[in-house]
């Protein structure tokens, strides 16, 4: 049973592995660039992302506007940089929430009595039976588009993914000898779950979460593209693509500029996630990427 990184030497070991793995290193660099540019957006972006400049509208790339401008003369490059903020604003709370609830439910299902396990599994299967985007649209139709709606919907539909993985791992750890020994020594259920099962589950789960970030970002962008996510004038990669779609016969630049960060973030997290997975749990190799 592999223990997660607890001390510095293990973290150093993970980094060493990442640097040896070229694609992993590339992934790490892309991820750092995206997170860095989102964090320091006000310093990097040359213009205010929502400032209108009608005389300069629908321009191609130039030294003044690196990626051109949109139909309202807003600087596309600045909107791409600020769009990263929106993407992470949605992805981080969504994944954290789904991870937490999936962890709790999955551990209860795996460790608890059989009837509770069946009940939770049924709940997972039920939630998973909605196609995510369709479910999101049903909710948006009622409450109207907003960031919180997007976060709620994606979180709710992601819980089963984590929950099922946690359940399977808990089931296999539960029957291992060291847990039996711990139980025979009189350890409480809470102690076994928090001290022994949780640390073993966290490593692979963190990898799964890293690989899930692009899916969530893609969903947010997709809903915003449909006009069902963030509201204008907030810059999101999806709303950039929407602007580009309506101007597709005037300028190709908005679509090109809105799509590239989405491709990059997916590549970055996928490469990084795969490299991390090889370190954390070699058994998971070949489980595939973002789906």
């Amino acid at each position: 049973m592999n223990k997660p990184a607890k001390n510095n030497s293990e973290i150093v070991e993970i980094f060493r592995h990442l640097i040896r793995d070229r694609l992993g290193l590339l992934g790490l660099i892309i991820v750092m660039l995206i997170i860095g540019s989102a964090l320091f957006a006000p310093l990097i972006a040359p213009y205010d992302p929502v400032a209108l400049n009608i005389p300069d509208r629908v321009q191609g790339p130039s030294f003044v506007h690196l990626l051109g401008t949109d139909q309202l003369g807003r600087d596309t490059f600045s909107r791409v940089i600020y769009g990263g903020r929106v993407a992470l604003q949605v992805a981080l709370p969504t994944i954290a929430g789904a991870l937490f609830l999936g962890l709790v439910l999955g551990m209860i299902a795996g460790y608890g009595p059989k009837w509770l396990d069946n009940l939770i599994l049924l709940f997972f299967d039920t939630v998973r039976s909605f196609p995510t985007v369709m479910f999101a649209l049903a909710v948006v139709a009622l409450v109207g588009p907003s960031l919180n709606t997007v976060i709620f919907v994606i979180m709710a539909t992601s819980i089963p993914t984590y929950g099922r993985v946690v359940r399977t791992m808990t089931l296999s750890i539960k029957t291992s000898e060291f847990i039996m020994a711990e139980r025979s020594l009189g350890a409480s259920t809470f102690r076994i779950m928090s001290v022994h099962i949780l640390p073993n589950v966290l490593g692979p789960l963190a990898v799964l979460a890293a690989m899930d970030i692009p899916t969530v970002v893609g969903l947010e962008a997709g809903l915003s593209f449909l006009g069902m996510g963030v509201k204008p004038p907030t810059p999101s990669w999806g709303s950039l693509l929407n602007d580009g779609y309506s101007l597709i016969r005037n300028t190709p630049w908005l679509i090109v500029a809105g799509g590239i960060p989405l491709i990059l973030i997916t590549l970055g997290f996928t490469f990084l996630g795969e490299a991390l997975r090889d370190v954390v749990d070699p058994k998971l190799r070949g489980r595939g990427g973002a789906k």
Partner: peptide
Amino acid sequence: SVSMIAVPAFVVSLYSLLFFAVT
């Protein structure tokens, strides 16, 4: 394979619309 998995379907839709249909 990894690169193909990486591109969200609606981005491929938009890019292919832009290149193969509009341009």
